[in-house]
């Protein structure tokens, strides 16, 4: 079902999902280091309270990185032609991210056989945080 093979894949097939550890303040500190994004909205509780926000929250790009990990666990990164995300809700401290994806289209693009995937990063309750899509070239 989930083999990354163009002929074997059908619209509606799901790719292997990825579930993360709960997002902690340490996760956000590490992500700030790894990404270089030190915006205080993700790190400094005093700052966020001064802006009327109850607590720090995850970098949107952390969720996109998790979606990227799900993709590169399924296909080599070189196969990814495009990858886009809309950030629809904020990820709070303590939430575990559940990344899923399914084939929504088989297409030819630039002379290559590709599939378009619809991807979702949600919490364990199923609330979508990011909706994404990717086009992946397959043999």
């Amino acid at each position: 079902m989930t083999t990354a093979n163009y002929d074997a894949l059908k619209v509606g097939d799901e790719i292997p999902s990825l579930t993360t550890e709960p997002v902690s303040r340490l996760t956000l500190a590490l992500y700030a280091t790894g990404s270089g994004d030190h915006h205080p909205l993700h790190l400094d509780q005093d700052y966020v309270r001064s802006k009327g926000i109850p607590d720090v929250f995850a970098h949107g790009m952390l969720g996109m990185a998790y979606l990227g990990r799900m993709l590169t666990q399924w296909v080599p990164q070189e196969a990814i032609r495009s990858f886009g995300v809309r950030f629809t809700a904020i990820t709070q401290i303590g939430e575990r991210m559940v990344c899923t994806g399914k084939v929504v289209e088989k297409l030819e693009q630039g002379g290559e056989k590709c599939v378009r995937l619809e991807l979702t990063c949600a919490n364990e309750q199923g609330e979508a945080k990011h909706k994404a899509d990717a086009v992946v070239a397959l043999a």
Binding site: H39, K51, G60, M61, Q77, F83, G84, F87
Partner: peptide
């Protein structure tokens, strides 16, 4: 005001690793 900023969308088109 960067304190009122949110990331709305992000996408990439890849040509070379």
């Amino acid at each position: 005001d960067l304190g009122k900023m949110l990331h709305g969308e992000q996408s990439f088109v890849y040509h070379k690793p």
